[in-house]
């Protein structure tokens, strides 16, 4: 348990650094440190599938964010309403803590999940699907419908980005586009 707490403290410090640092590139790298710490936490909790996915997605996001932030002229939000903002933030933190006080007591203890449906998945997963990796037998057989929805979300996201960012959509009215950069 001790190493979990050390990693959690490391991640919290990384998140605070990411907010407080003035340089945008350092902030992105601090966010990356938080993500890599989370990946090690998943490994310690014996969830290698999630750890691999977290690691590779974190690296991809880091590359894209660094590509986006290397230009220095990004706008910073420096409004003068710090008193108003702080009051709202503290109010919401107090509200969520108040609700969480009751809600967290209803959760099962850490490490002892409620195994109602999952027990039958664990018992019959291998015989019913033939897949040794039970995570993939759940996401691609028992709950394949969810995965189809997730795949549709990603497909829509890719189409949305390609539509918004392409040259054709951003040209001026009389501008002519060269063939090779679409």
């Amino acid at each position: 348990m001790l190493e979990l707490y050390i990693l959690l403290i490391f991640m919290i410090i990384g998140a605070i650094v990411a907010i407080e640092v003035k340089d945008l590139l350092s902030s992105v790298i601090a966010v990356g440190a938080v993500g890599l710490g989370l990946s090690i936490v998943f490994l310690l909790l014996k969830a290698p599938d999630v750890a691999i996915t977290q690691l590779v997605v974190e690296i991809l996001c880091l590359i894209i964010l660094i590509q986006a932030t290397l230009k220095k002229d990004l706008p910073f939000s420096t409004t003068g309403r710090w008193f108003f903002n702080t009051v709202i933030a503290i109010g919401f933190i107090a509200l969520f803590l108040y609700i969480a006080k009751d809600a967290l007591q209803l959760l099962p203890e850490f490490g002892n999940p409620i195994m109602r449906v999952a027990r039958s998945y664990l018992a019959e997963g291998l015989t019913k699907t033939g897949a040794v990796n039970l995570v993939s037998s759940v996401i691609l057989d028992f709950r394949a419908y969810d995965t189809l929805g997730e795949a549709t979300v990603l497909f829509t996201a890719v189409i949305g980005v390609l539509t918004l960012v392409r040259r054709q959509g951003r040209k001026k009215e009389n501008e002519v586009i060269e063939k090779d950069d679409e």
């Binding site: 599938d49 993939s136 996401i139 691609l140």
Partner: peptide, 10 residues
Amino acid sequence: GHISPGGGFA
């Protein structure tokens, strides 16, 4: 993906 950790997304 069906034998070792990982899978299509990763």
